[in-house]
């Protein structure tokens, strides 16, 4: 079992480090667990996931992020990825002219030692089988990464990458946004297939809807840069019924 420990983490925009967005957040995710992070817009959920992945726009001003006790904060984004972190983007970038096949192959190659090469035949076999299970047309392999993809195609492509790269910890940022119910089911099934003892998931979502399909082990409510409430799946159901206002009030009372 491995752990991703977020320890008293404070994050700000690199360009305005004095205005924290994530404010002393702590959370430990172990492999085998799925943690849902819910909360209203603007509470720092996306910032949290991008900062863990090493996005240059965000600066960790205090606290730490550790994998099995080893800090990742000094690592470049690519080193963090090779250390086992995967960020499924809310808005995946389009890379014109770079085919999905070449892109994923470069990502796999990056995980091999010097002098080793991706076995092309085995790679394509694996790629096609993952694509089939995510109901992605095999023709997509020659299409440019995310270019001209629909919202649903982009999200499925994120899950495809996750399936191929087999991270230890997946940070899924609003993976359900922009998906219709059929696409949502395919994506959820893809994630459920990857669930297991070797993967820890941090799943950011606005809506309880996703949690009907990917049932979390833990639910955390994030508000104003902190986790203000944690529970199990029933917390998500409560949020769905009552909205976020009671959390805000509770938090306001608590901090008053």
């Amino acid at each position: 079992m491995k752990s991703l420990e977020i320890r008293d983490l404070t994050v700000a925009l690199t360009e305005s480090p004095d205005q924290p967005i994530v404010k002393g957040l702590s959370l430990t995710i172990k492999t085998g667990e799925v943690h849902a992070i819910m909360g209203p817009n603007g509470t720092g959920k996306s910032t949290l996931s991008k900062a863990i992945a090493g996005h240059p726009d965000y600066k960790v001003t205090s606290g730490d992020v550790l994998i099995d006790g080893v800090s990742v904060l000094e690592m470049e984004p690519d080193e963090r990825a090779r250390a086992g972190i995967f960020l499924a983007f809310q808005y995946p970038a389009e890379i014109p002219g770079v085919s999905i096949a070449n892109f994923l192959r470069a990502a796999e190659q990056a995980r091999l030692a010097d002098g080793e090469n991706v076995d092309a035949a085995a790679y394509y076999k694996r790629l096609y089988s993952k694509m089939d299970s995510l109901k992605i047309d095999r023709k997509f392999t020659s299409r440019s990464v995310n270019e001209g993809f629909s919202g649903g195609e982009k999200k499925r492509c994120e899950i495809l990458q996750m399936a191929m790269l087999e991270p230890t910890f997946a940070l899924m940022d609003e993976t359900d946004s922009g998906l219709d119910i059929d696409a949502l089911k395919i994506v959820a099934e893809g994630v459920n297939n990857l669930r297991g003892d070797n993967l820890g998931v941090m799943m950011i979502t606005h809506y309880q809807r996703l949690l009907d399909y990917i049932v979390p082990d833990f639910v955390h409510v994030m508000y104003d840069g902190r986790i203000v409430k944690s529970g199990d799946k029933s917390l998500a159901i409560e949020l769905e019924a009552k909205g976020y206002d009671w959390i805000k009030e509770e938090f306001a009372t608590a901090s008053a």
């Binding site: 984004p77 690519d78 995967f86 960020l87 002219g97 070449n102 892109f103 990502a107 790269l165």
Partner: peptide, 23 residues
Amino acid sequence: FYLQSRGIDPAKAHELIVFGFFE
């Protein structure tokens, strides 16, 4: 950042982007 977040180092990321540009 997208390429790096998949484990691809900055030099290789640039190379991929250049090839994409040339394609």
